[in-house]
Nucleic acid binder design. Structure first.
Lengths: 120, 120
DNA sequence: AGAGCATATACGTGTCAAGGTATATTAAGC
DNA sequence: GCTTAATATACCTTGACACGTATATGCTCT
């Protein structure tokens, strides 16, 4: 009875392993459903259903080529994931910095030769 | 009966909105369960259960402070997500490059003034 | 028009995970 | 030791979703 098909978050979409596999396949070039089916060895309805989810969520788009449909990647949704990660990247690079400072302090105490530290 | 509780993928872990909220909270500083509970306005068992999942998946670790437990972020699992994104980043920056080249061609055809293009 | 290939959808089923409520654990303070 | 605070866990119910199988749609070629 007509309720709103709430747009699933991009995170739920990529939670599914087969969908991630499809996306990884498409990153090199566009593929037809049959090609995906063969390369990933999954049944055709499975591929189609996942492609539907990916398409409705904006991860892919398709063009018609005779009986085939060619699916290709669209960047926006994964960029959204990338954006969500940004604060955490700052977090862990801060941790790396702390580690570096720690190692530098070690250097002072035991001044042995050490490979050049990465520049900041 | 008695099958292996397969370690869920990091993607399934962050598919859950409440867990993402918790992680985002922890990025600024460590928090006790009660603090998380209040800030996110979710029932305490919910918080504890999500923290358990996050802990077992290595997203967080906890230390004991009297009756409280302080939870803090661990970087590795999210770095894993970041690593998975890498090929796609190359993909969409390639697309941006193509767009730039396209705009450059436009420049040549209609040489009107335009803001300085971002350098490569 | 009919046959055959490529893709999409419908339907039934099983599984699993999230939430709610209740209760157990553990530590603190009097 | 008992009470209270903080957190964890147990149990149950419900809903979503992924899969398999079957079938529909659509295009092409003869």
């Amino acid at each position: 009875m007509g309720y709103i098909k709430s747009v699933e978050s991009v995170f739920e979409i990529i939670a599914e392993p087969n969908r991630r596999a499809i996306l990884s396949l498409l990153v090199s070039s566009q593929q037809s459903v049959g090609e995906i089916e063969r390369q990933l060895r999954m049944p055709q309805p499975t591929v189609s259903k996942h492609l539907r989810v990916l398409r409705e969520a904006g991860f892919v788009e398709s063009t018609v080529d005779a009986q085939r449909r060619l699916y290709r990647l669209k960047p926006e949704p994964l960029q959204e994931v990338d954006a969500w990660l940004a604060p955490f990247r700052r977090f862990w690079s801060a941790h790396l910095d702390a580690l570096e400072r720690h190692l530098d302090r070690m250097d002072q105490k035991t001044p042995t030769k050490r490979k050049t530290r990465r520049r900041r």
